[in-house]
Amino acid sequence: MSGFFKSSIGRKYAMALSAFFLMFFLLQHFAINILSVFSPDAFNEASHFMGTFWAVQYVLQPVLIFGVMYHFIMGFILEIKNRNARVAKYAKNNGAANSSWMSRNMIYSGLAILAFLVLHFIDFWLPEISTKYIQGDMSGLLADSEGFRYYEELTHKFVNPLRVGAYVIAFVFLSLHLTHGFSSAFQSSGVSSMRKEKLQIFGKVYAIAIPLGFIAIALFHHFNH
C-alpha cells in the first residue's frame, strides 16, 4: 500500500480525498455562516459549540489543518512534476480547443485561495487561538459579559471595504477552482461516468452556489452595519 501512494494514481486518490474533506468542510462552514444572516443568536450558539467542543477542536481541526496543507503542498508538487514532463514547450498551443480555462489553471485559482487563507488565518483563526488557548478565555463572551462575542467579531470584520473586496475576489477564484475540481475529484477516485453525469450537475450548483453564498453573507454584513 505504501507504494500505492507514491504512484501517480495513488497521489491522485490522496489529492481527491483531501479535496473531498475540504469541500465537506466548506459546506459545514457555510451552514454556520448563513445563520449569521437570519439569527445572530443561533450563529453565536453554533460558533461557541464549534469553538469549544473537544471533538471539533482536537480531532477535526487538526485533520483540517493537515488536509489543507497536504492539498496545497501536493498541488505544488504535482504542478512542478507536470511542468517537468514537458521540457520543450510548443511554439503554438491551442489549449482552449480541448479543455476549460479552469482545468488548465488550477494552480493559479489555488494560489488565490491560499493567499486568502493566510488573510483568513490572521483575521479569525489566530485571534481565536490566542483568546482561547493563550489568554485562556474559553467563555466565548464579550469583554463586558453581555453575551457571546462571535457575531460582534464577524460583523466588525466586514466593515472594511478592502477586506470585503478581497473576500469577494477570493470566493470567485474558489468558485473557478471548484467548477473543475468537484467533478475532477470524482473522476480521480474512479467513479464511473454514468453516475458522474448527475454528479456534474450537482457539482456545478455546489461550485457556484456555495462561494456565491459566502459572498452574499459578506456583502449583507457590510451593508447592514
Partner: peptide
C-alpha cells in the same frame, strides 16, 4: 506527467 482531468 500526472493526470489533472482536463479532458484534452
Amino acid at each position: 506527467g500526472n493526470c489533472t482531468n482536463t479532458g484534452a
